[in-house]
Design a protein around this nucleic acid. Sequence first.
DNA 1: TATGTGTTATATTATAAATATAACACATAT
DNA 2: ATATGTGTTATATTTATAATATAACACATA
Lengths: 126, 126
Amino acid sequence: MLLRIEFESDIPIYMQIKNQIIEGIALGMLKEGDELPSIRQLASDFGINLHTVKKAYDILKDEGFLSVHRRKGYVVTKNASADDNFIEELKKDLQPILANAFSRGMTEDEILKICREILEQFKNGM
Amino acid sequence: MLLRIEFESDIPIYMQIKNQIIEGIALGMLKEGDELPSIRQLASDFGINLHTVKKAYDILKDEGFLSVHRRKGYVVTKNASADDNFIEELKKDLQPILANAFSRGMTEDEILKICREILEQFKNGM
DNA sequence: TATGTGTTATATTATAAATATAACACATAT
DNA sequence: ATATGTGTTATATTTATAATATAACACATA
């Protein structure tokens, strides 16, 4: 599992880590039972603080993507489900992004094509 | 054009304003030439600061959704295009959101259905 | 000339993100 | 037993971003 952090990005570091781990799971690069690097290890690799990594991991734990074992550390656990609550959040997240694309003149088909391409990656486990 | 601000939201106020104006354009509620409330007016309506509103408006101006006239104030101008640069950003924005949905077990069809529903709103100008 | 637009500048406060350090709890390899 | 490597908790500090507060200015036009 390769992580890269863009320090110049406007996306907070803990969010980049969180997002990339979810993407790793979606792509099949991270499977149930896989152990993640320890918070100290990852922090050290990137020259960032232990708490920044822990924040990302803890959010993923709360959401059901990770669980934690005393000795093994954080482990992939796919307990996150797409309940009604999540669907609502999903719509709220997508709404402004799709509105932006549509307002710039993209057609429904053009926009859906991009969504399909991204989802295709996940299905094929690239 | 009705705006609502959620002060408890984790989304910054200027971002909520920005997003809702883009959604207004996507929904056809805001059309080319429409004048927005003045920054002082909108700030006063919501009990927020003039600069918070200006920040939102200025971003929209930079992106080509608004232009500004000395007397009329900020006006809807659809100069925002979906160039290669935007498409790249769009993919980057969609990637983590779709990964999240997919990792929770949603199928491609289920996810695309939600995208279609949102886009349908825009096409029908709800 | 008064009024209502946006603009610019400066300072301050509030909140979130990230860091720095230290000490602790727990499992297990040695 | 003890050392080591996990995560955990606590506290304080620094940095960056968001939001506010005030004031003065430029411009168009009624």
